[in-house]
Each structure stands twice: as C-alpha cells, then as structure tokens.
Design a binder for these strands. Structure first.
Length: 413
RNA sequence: CGGGAUGUGGCCUAACGGCUAAGGCGCUUGGUUUGGGACCAAGAGAUUGUGGGUUCGAAUCCCACCAUCCCGACCA
C-alpha cells in the first residue's frame, strides 16, 4: 500500500476527548475515528489489524472442528421473551419495524442459534457440534469507556457448542480454553486463565484476563499454577492448589468460556434422540472473544513513548518502507526509483508493505509517523542505500542494522 | 442513574463582561529545505455545543438541555 493513497491522518497532539491510552494511540495513529461514546469507525489501518486477529481466531477454531456461520443481528423480540432475558438484561437496544414488529439488536446470540440448531439436529449422531461467528454486538452500556475496551457496538467472536452430556461438553470446553490461550499468545498477549462466576448458568465460568493497570477487573493470581480467580468469587488470598499467597492484579477480560448446561435447550426444547430412542436435552456451551476489545487491550500493553508497537502477527503491515529525500534532486530521483523497486520486490515476495512514497514530507515527519503507527520493521531508503546497502531498523529494540538487498527477505521473515 | 470535570475552525490551545474571536498543528499555492512532526510568504477555514435569561454590550455571568471524559453502580 502506498502511503500517499492511504486513507488516514495522524495527530501530533493528544486528543482532548479521550483519556485512555488505547484510544489516544489508535486515533492519533489513524487506526480509528470516534463517532460518539463507545462508538468508533475503523479506518483501513485499524481494519487491517482486526482482519489479522480474525484470521488467527478462524484458523485456530477451524483446527478444533468449529464451523463458521453468520447470524442475524435483528432479533424478533419473541425469542427474547422465550428465554425471559428481555426482563433481565437492561442493556438491550430495542427497535421497531414500520409495521410495529419489535426487535432486539443482538447483544449475544443464544436466542437465535438455539432455534437454528433445533431445526437441523435431532440425533446423538449429529453431536457434538460447534458453530461460531464473528459479528457485531450491541449493548446499551450504562457507561461506555476506555476507548475500545467497553463499547456500545463492538465486534465479537462467539462460539456455541452442543453435546450429548456434560462430560463431553467439559472436555470440549477445556479444549477451547487451551485454544484461547494459544489465540491470545499469537496476538502478542499474555492472557491468564481465570476462574469466575458462572452467572445463572453454572457454578463457574472461565475468563481470559490480560494484566494491565488500565484494566477494570481485579484477579487473584497464582504464579506457581499460572491461574487466577476473579475477585467476585475469591474466598481466600491463598491458591486452592498450592497454597501460595495470591497476587492481586488489574486486568482486562478479553474472552470467556461458559458451560450453559441445559438452560437454553430447555427454553427452546432442543432435544436429541439417544441410542435407545430416548429424548434428551442437549448440553451446550458458549465461548466469546471480544475482538475489538482485544485490539484495544493489545494497544494498552504494546506501546512505547513514541506510539504503538504491534506484535508481529497482527501488525497492519510487516514492513514500513520509508523513502527519504534530500536537497540533491539527482539523488532523490535515484532513491525514488530504488524505493519503488524494493516495494515491488517486497510485494512480489508477499511481504505486506506500507510504502511511504511521499516526496513532500520531511524525513523527520516520516520517522515520527512511522513510530506512531508501529509497524514492526522499517526499511529505510536513504543516501546510504545507494551503494547496494539498505538500512533496516528493527523497531522493538530500536536496533539499526544494515542489510544487503539480497538478504532483505531473510531479515523480514 | 448518582458524583466530578470539560465543551472555541478538522486537531490542540488563547482571549479581564467591551474594537473584526487570537495563535499553533493540519490543509491550499509558491519558494527554500530534508536521518527524528523543518522554514519563509500568501491564502481558505468559526454564527465559541444547543436554547433561553441577565446586560447598553456575553466565548466569558445565570438557568435548562445536549455531548464528551473520569469515579461509582452494571457488564464481553
């Protein structure tokens, strides 16, 4: 992508109407734009990162046998009356059609997926089944806050699984827990598996908490067991397993896994026939990852005083190709030619590259903007590049090393 | 919903109740620059969140509403 054509704008000064670090950096870097409280547009750079995260999630979930679907976001209100959650949730956005039909804007999708699954499965042979989607959710939060961490409209991956018994469900839930840890790791985050309240469904649920001071949750963490307990369920300040004293850590919840038991199967009369032709309730689990929140959490954790430092798997680009310019027009022309050649070369070799091809911007500004955007590798085309050498800056440790063109690919992979 | 703070061009700020609302960034044009948000010159861009009130006169004082941020209750 040529930066001269990229739809974005960076800001020099911090944004008055935002307090959180993730919103500051994402707005100032040209990733998102604010519309209102808890409402953000995604610009090309921000969307690129979202897509990277989605890809990781899809790959890992597909590996464990989940299938992707897409469910509606306009929910006819009857479905919510059936589960009686219409009275319990005070975060529901409601709307009406021209002829007075009432709808709920999806805050979650149990009400839609259970009727769907009911139409298709009927036998133990149809189970287990795991379906997920990546879709927007709407929640009328009492207080949206902290940039992307608590929004009224947000992107979520929700997975639902269906089983013949609790044992099979719990086995699958453990598999999802393991997969989640892997997904967060691939996204460049350390997430701590945390036991939390299961709400109305079951005794416990599992949360995935990312330690950071800006988090709104508090967990009690055992270093030995690498596990934590949410403040809401903690009884003692000592680990259940090894009796070690627990550390209290502020954190952001980026995912959770729930055993739903038969709650919704009962509501929607979701049965299967077992081997003995006996009708039984389907056991179900649900598993969420707040994708836009995850993006916010990643920024909260991965930054320095110059800007965002994207973990390499989810960076919007792999390389930031910077064309420098000087007073000497001849040299400039040579550099433009060389930079274009390198850009072609990188693109042809599938290195996703943002090419700062602008010639009307000072070199200094290019560096500062590049730091703010936070692409892992800078490939700098300057005077010294004209003798077959390229200067490459690895951003994480701010180390500069020179590489020959032939070795460029090896260094970027 | 309770408490606190804030609202001035796209962004960040200034302006004692008193002249045409000032400056920086960004943007446009021209010129000089170029290894860390360069400089000079000339421009474009605002009914100071909205509505009411006080006053000869309101960005400034008062009231209401709205919006945004923070704390709390609630929550992925």
């Amino acid at each position: 992508m040529k930066q001269s054509k990229l739809f974005y704008k960076t800001y020099k000064e911090s944004i008055h109407s935002e307090d959180s670090l993730n919103a500051q950096l994402l707005i100032r870097g040209g990733f998102i734009e604010k519309v209102g409280s808890g409402l953000y547009n995604f610009l090309p750079l921000g969307l690129k990162v979202l897509e990277k995260i989605k890809r990781i999630i899809r790959e890992e979930l597909n590996k464990i046998g989940c299938q992707e679907i897409s469910l509606i976001n306009l929910h006819p209100i009857e479905y919510w009356q059936i589960t009686k959650r219409i009275d319990k949730f005070d975060i529901l956005f409601k709307t009406k059609s021209h002829n007075g039909i009432e709808y709920i804007l999806a805050p979650t999708h149990e009400e839609i997926i259970f009727p769907l699954v009911k139409k298709i499965i009927s036998s133990y042979k149809d189970l287990p089944l795991a379906l997920y989607q990546i879709n927007l959710k709407y929640r009328d939060e009492l207080r949206a806050k902290a940039g992307l961490l608590r929004n009224r409209e947000f992107l979520m991956k929700d997975l639902y699984s269906f089983h013949i018994n609790d044992e099979d469900l719990e086995k699958f839930k453990s598999l999802v827990d393991k997969t989640y840890l892997k997904i967060f790791k691939l996204c460049g985050l350390r997430a701590i598996l945390t036991l939390a309240s299961g709400g109305t469904f079951s005794k416990f649920s599992t949360e995935f908490q990312v330690p950071t001071l800006s988090g709104e949750d508090e967990i009690y963490y055992c270093e030995n067991c690498n596990q934590a307990w949410n403040k809401e369920i903690i009884k003692t300040s000592k680990c259940d397993h090894c009796k070690k004293k627990l550390d209290i850590i502020k954190s952001i919840e980026v995912g959770n896994t729930f055993n739903l038991g038969t709650k919704f199967s009962k509501d929607f009369e979701l049965f299967y026939l077992d081997k003995f032709n006996k009708k039984k309730y389907v056991l179900a689990g649900c598993y969420g990852i707040g994708i836009s929140r995850l993006l916010g959490a990643i920024v909260e954790v991965n930054n320095d005083k110059y800007g965002i430092v994207w973990p390499s798997n989810i960076a919007p680009f792999r390389a930031h190709l910077l064309l420098l310019q000087y007073s000497n027009k001849k040299i400039n022309l040579k550099l433009i030619k060389l930079a274009n050649k390198i850009y072609q070369f990188l693109t042809n070799n599938n290195i996703e590259t943002l090419f700062d091809d602008r010639t009307d911007v000072s070199n200094g500004q290019k560096f500062v903007e590049s730091d703010l955007i936070g692409i892992p590798y800078k490939v700098i085309i300057g005077e010294s590049s004209l003798n077959e050498e390229l200067e490459i800056k690895l951003r994480n440790n701010n180390k500069i090393f020179k590489v020959k063109i032939n070795n460029l690919l090896k260094c970027l992979k």
